[in-house]
């Protein structure tokens, strides 16, 4: 194979094994989420908010970071980011069932309000976009300490209208901080479409105003996302500052389990999403390049489903925190003198 016919993943320096691992994380993200919907519809858990349609954006982005070294301040759809960062399906399920051992909050928070200290995944809240400023602060503090750390942060295109979005980009731009801002643009902020959310239609263009590259990338193409993030990560480590990356994604599910998108999206529009599904695309790439065959894919599916079955059973069997746990961790334990 000559250089100009080199497969895209090879041109990016990714081995077959790495690419298969990326695909398996995309598949794991999808299958975990599908299980959560089943559990929710079956009345086992109260709530789901979904990454479906953004698996390529999340896994492609997360792969450019160094696990247990770089930092993540994700948003609620970032299941794929969490999995690549090292959070296990068991831990995700503990959160979904709001069990005591959930490392994010022990059942205090709704599902998908991530947090995992050992893997540098920051605790998140429900008001959108606040975490972008935390990412900037982490970048600022890391630089003060002389640490070689790059920070991932993310929000949706609707959130790019919040004041905190603009304040964060501006601050990071002024100080050239090592932060990469991902906008997962899935075209809808709950029910409100892009054209009623984002003047000018492009979030990426907003980067220019804050002194950083604003890059638009196909968020359903895992290699395109990885390429953009790898370049942004290198730029951050060179001390050249932040990057804004807008990944054009799709939203396959409703906003959350409390929403029904058929009320505001055309059936034809929903049907058309199937052709853009990032998993279908990635699967096609793998088969086309002979990196895996149908039997190999089936084995991968089986392995993932077994892991999810085990995680679900495990988490469901775990206890809730005691009711009085609601009174804990308000302040640090009182420090005694001497």
């Amino acid at each position: 194979m000559t250089a100009n016919t080199q497969a895209r993943h090879e041109a990016l320096g990714l081995s077959r094994e790495q690419l298969l691992e990326m695909f398996s994380y995309m598949l794991l993200t999808r299958r975990v989420d599908e299980r959560l919907w089943l559990l929710q519809r079956g009345g086992k858990i109260p709530f789901v908010i979904s990454p479906q349609g953004a698996e390529a954006a999340q896994v492609g982005a997360a792969y450019a970071f160094r696990r247990d070294h770089d930092w993540f301040t994700p948003y609620y759809r970032d299941l794929g980011i969490n999995l690549v960062a090292g959070v296990t399906p068991r831990e995700i399920m503990l959160g979904a069932f709001a069990r005591s051992d959930c490392p994010a909050s022990g059942g205090k928070q709704m599902p998908s309000h991530w947090g995992n200290r050992p893997h540098n995944v920051l605790s998140g809240s429900s008001p959108v976009t606040t975490q972008l400023l935390h990412a900037v602060g982490i970048g600022q503090a890391a630089r003060m300490r002389g640490d070689d750390v790059v920070v991932y942060t993310c929000c949706g295109e609707g959130s790019s209208n919040q004041g905190d979005f603009h304040e964060a980009l501006n601050w990071a731009g002024v100080h050239k901080l090592p932060v990469i801002f991902l906008i997962q643009n899935n075209q809808y902020a709950i029910s409100v479409p892009l054209e009623k959310q984002v003047a000018g239609g492009s979030v990426a263009n907003r980067g220019q105003g804050y002194g950083m590259p604003g890059i638009e990338v196909d968020g359903t193409d895992v290699l395109a996302v990885y390429e953009a993030f790898r370049a942004a990560h290198e730029r951050a480590r060179r001390g050249e500052g932040p990057t804004l990356i807008e990944a054009k994604c799709i939203r396959i599910t409703s906003h959350s389990s409390d929403d029904d998108q058929r009320r505001y999206r055309d059936p034809a529009e929903l049907e058309a999403l199937k052709a853009k599904d990032p998993l279908v695309k990635a699967r096609g790439y793998l088969l086309e390049h002979g990196l895996i065959d149908e039997a190999g894919l089936e084995a991968m599916e089986k392995k993932i489903m077994a892991m999810i079955d085990e995680a679900t059973e495990f988490a469901e069997a775990q206890p809730y925190a005691k009711p009085e746990f609601a009174l804990t961790h308000v302040y640090a334990p009182e420090q005694r003198e001497g």
Partner: peptide, 22 residues
């Protein structure tokens, strides 16, 4: 800081989470 109060506090929170004392 830039003239942005939410950022003064939000960046401070991030910096405190990292271990510094803003």
């Amino acid at each position: 800081s830039p003239l942005t109060e939410s950022a003064i506090v939000g960046v401070g929170i991030g910096a405190a989470l990292y271990g510094t004392k803003p």
